[in-house]
Design a protein around this nucleic acid. Structure first.
Lengths: 336, 336
DNA sequence: CTGTTAGCGCTTTCAA
DNA sequence: TTGAAAGCGCTAACAG
């Protein structure tokens, strides 16, 4: 069952069938109709592999993420797929599992499938792998690539603005002693958030107490432990900002374990706005980083670069927004 | 850059390069080594499309799910990929978004990519689409297919056993009035759970009060509303089982809104054990349905069927297990 | 507007 | 063990 059979049944050449499939305008409507009917009756599905091979275009875009079970990614994946479908393109998803070796495997898969572009939404990627893509002129889009490069698109996130919004919100609620639970310092984006927090305190003339800047790991366990340490101080902060939502959720657990209440005794702010955050008890106030926006910008950058054959990539900056829910409240009376 | 260049550099024919790539044992180690070195220096990645076209095997397995942002699926996807990688196969993921039309698109994608098998982990699929696969002898594996079919593998879940375990657990805690929040009755698996609940009550000689069997939608909003209705009754149940975790989480919110405590005033049990459930406050007691097990069984069934060319599919039954966390406790004194 | 035909890059007989 | 060559199914000049 192939294009020949369709051609035979429709009494045309394979070229005409191909043209019809690809929506060429140089096919008489009547002919096209006949072809379409033949396709229908034969239940013919054009072989993607042959198409890609013949045309040199795969219409496939790669999406490399760390781990689909990390709640940050599902929405990103979904949005990326949705927009790709809109553009008539397909998506090849690959997980690195935070493992450099798996990353190599992912890159190799992309190369073998001859993708038309790759969105790399994870930080850990070796320079030589980027070169593989570059030398083949495969468009790349990064999320938060620290070192922008020739011909590579970059989606930047204004983390500082997000942190600022969180700090301002807490200050407006009367908080003066604000703690922070950082993410892994190996992550550029985590470093930026921590620095932004410190700067925000300064700008607001709040004293920076380094013992209230704790270290987490962007997972719940790290948040839990960090918050426990924070609560060990006789005079703990009345509000804590976490570097991401998972950290905040872990932190909330630690607060409850001490018999304290959120937000009556302590306010908590997260970062990312993963789905889960709306369902915590109380619902988490957090800085929303729109995954849909990231996905759209990344895909469009790739698509445009591929279509136009442009050699320089685009750069976009995304503004996070504060989502106020129930985990933040006025500073408790009598505290500092 | 293709197999020819490699052949030239290694001073062999393209056939030998192909054999080396595919690990044929009829290549002298020395020759193979030369080829491998050539591949290395040229940074050659064999074109998957051409490989599939030439061989007739795609080494690609399709995975159709409803929606990657549904927390049930990420772990399933990950496990499926992990095992596929182990077997040297690739995975093509497709979301239906609960939309029959998108389902057609998904099926079409699978057909066009000439997948070697498809795991359909969503319920809504039209009969004629199944036929498309059948007529092309593409192995299929279903999750919970109500009507088992010729040559199709089926992963069954013993939902009843899971519900039984939940009911038994609550009874052992002294509960006598147990409520249930069902899922959408359009879902076979939801119907089974509801029926299992009713049967379990009977078997334990507990009276079945139909006003305590509420209707949800497997989402948090449905759980919230259903639980609110349940709590409107003067004498509400002291324990409630939800048809899935999202429902349970929504229900928990409704309980808190009334100023009641979990599990002191009311115990809650979920179903699925999605990641989120470990992080609710209190952590949710639930019936765990191992997505890893589902994924493994589904993939292996497909792989074996394809490799052996078997015409009849396998059938497996998965036993869910109760995970006791903090949302269940003894029946409150003085209640029924 | 339609048909002919030479590839696309790899696999796989078939011979050697 | 290796090579030559005929496909795999489709696309895209090129001709007409």
């Amino acid at each position: 069952m192939n294009i020949k059979e369709v051609a035979r049944l429709a009494k045309v050449s394979t070229a005409t069938v191909s043209r019809t499939i690809n929506g060429s305008d140089k096919v008489t409507p009547e002919t096209a109709e006949r072809v379409r009917k033949a396709i229908e009756t034969l239940k013919f599905y054009p072989n993607t592999n042959a198409r890609a091979l013949g045309s040199g275009r795969s219409s496939l875009y790669g999406l490399i993420i760390s781990d689909i079970t990390n709640p940050f990614f599902p929405e990103l994946v979904k949005s990326f797929e949705d927009i790709a479908v809109q553009y008539g393109q397909e998506v090849l998803i690959a997980n690195t599992n935070y493992d450099p070796h798996r990353m190599e495997v992912c890159v190799s898969r992309m190369l073998q499938r001859k993708v038309d572009g790759v969105a790399i939404m994870t930080s850990e990627i070796a320079e030589h792998l980027i070169d593989e893509f570059n030398s083949r002129k495969i468009p790349l889009a990064f999320l938060d690539n620290a070192t922008p490069q020739k011909g590579i698109s970059n989606i930047l996130v204004d983390y500082a603005a997000g942190i600022d919004a969180a700090v301002d919100h807490l200050i407006s609620l009367g908080h003066k002693t604000i703690g922070f639970i950082a993410g892994p310092m190996s992550l550029a984006s985590a470093r930026i958030r921590k620095r932004a927090f410190i700067n925000a305190l300064k700008r607001n003339n709040l004293k920076l107490d380094l013992q209230f800047v704790e270290q987490g790991n962007h997972r719940t366990d790290g948040g839990h432990e960090a918050m426990s340490r924070l609560l060990d101080h006789k005079a703990h902060p009345t509000a804590v900002i976490a570097s991401n939502d998972m950290t905040a959720i872990g932190a909330m657990g630690a607060v409850f374990e001490r018999g304290l209440h959120i937000p009556q005794d302590i306010s908590i702010v997260g970062f990312d706005d993963i789905e889960l955050s709306a369902f915590t008890q109380p619902a988490l106030t957090t800085v929303r980083l729109s995954r849909q926006e990231i996905a759209k910008l990344a895909f469009r950058a790739l698509y445009n670069t591929y279509q136009t054959g442009a050699t320089k990539g685009a750069e976009y900056t995304i503004q996070p927004t504060l989502v106020i829910r129930k985990s933040t409240g006025p500073k408790p009376a009598g505290k500092h």
